[in-house]
Amino acid sequence: MEQTMHENEYLYSGHVACSGCGAAIAMRFLLKALGEKTIIVLPACCWSIIAGPYPQSSLKVPVIHSAFEAGGAVASGVRAALDVKGDTETTVVTWAGDGGTFDIGFQALSGAVERNEDFIYVCYDNEAYMNTGIQRSSSTPYGAWTTTTPGIEWKKLRKKNIVEALVAHRIPYAATANIAFPEDLVRKAKKAKEIKGSRFLHIYSSCPTGWRIPSEMSIKIARMAVQTNIFPLYEVEDGVNYTINYKSKEYPVREYFKLQGRFKHLSDKDLEQIQEMVNEDWQRLLKKA
């Protein structure tokens, strides 16, 4: 683990992610864990840009950009082709944002994991369509401002529980991870690498630009999401065996919300309601674990 974190770099400097981009950090950690024998399938998302404009690439592993909704399918194809070629060593990873996972890409993802395709699907979740300029997605949390949920129309619907949706497919491995917990993230990625079949990693990746937070708070906010139980760290094996990986500090959600511009309109009453939602979700998770 030590060596993994401190050596082996698979990203090039000079990529054009926003300052403090959590998604860049997430990719860095993932590739540190998976190593050079990795092929990245990249449906449309912020990383379509971060990966570099022609003729540049910011990744030291092969990449195939794909249509927005096609992450699960393209990866299925790459895996099948590698199998045909007898390459069992290379790990195929779909690296998608929340749009490409929760929304437009959900069909291809569901199809691929139902077939138990042998690949890792990673959703780096920044909770809105950030690449197009902060529009709401089904991952956008209750209470958030986005450019399509402006003013009093702030999102009043819950965030889709994508991990549970994946778990319902009974895939061999599904886990949440967070850029503020690199060791946990790397451990899960390494674990996923050793498992056959469909594996799903849901990585919380903060977005200073879209969340209206100072760039230096990127990790801090991500950590708070775990500390408040808004984004619990857990893993599920074979769709049934739950393990919670982080003993919650149960910080009040208010602390997390008040640091972010996207939530600044929320009243105390709203925050109380959100706290109740978070508590409820956490209790549900505890029951499963």
Binding site: S66, A70, G72, S76, G77, A80, G111
Partner: peptide
């Protein structure tokens, strides 16, 4: 590949062909 849609059928082949088969 018994995919779940025509869209995924061709998407998957974009993956296979880019991998050279």
């Amino acid at each position: 590949l018994r995919v779940e849609s025509e869209h995924s059928a061709l998407a998957a082949l974009i993956g296979t062909a880019t991998t050279g088969v």
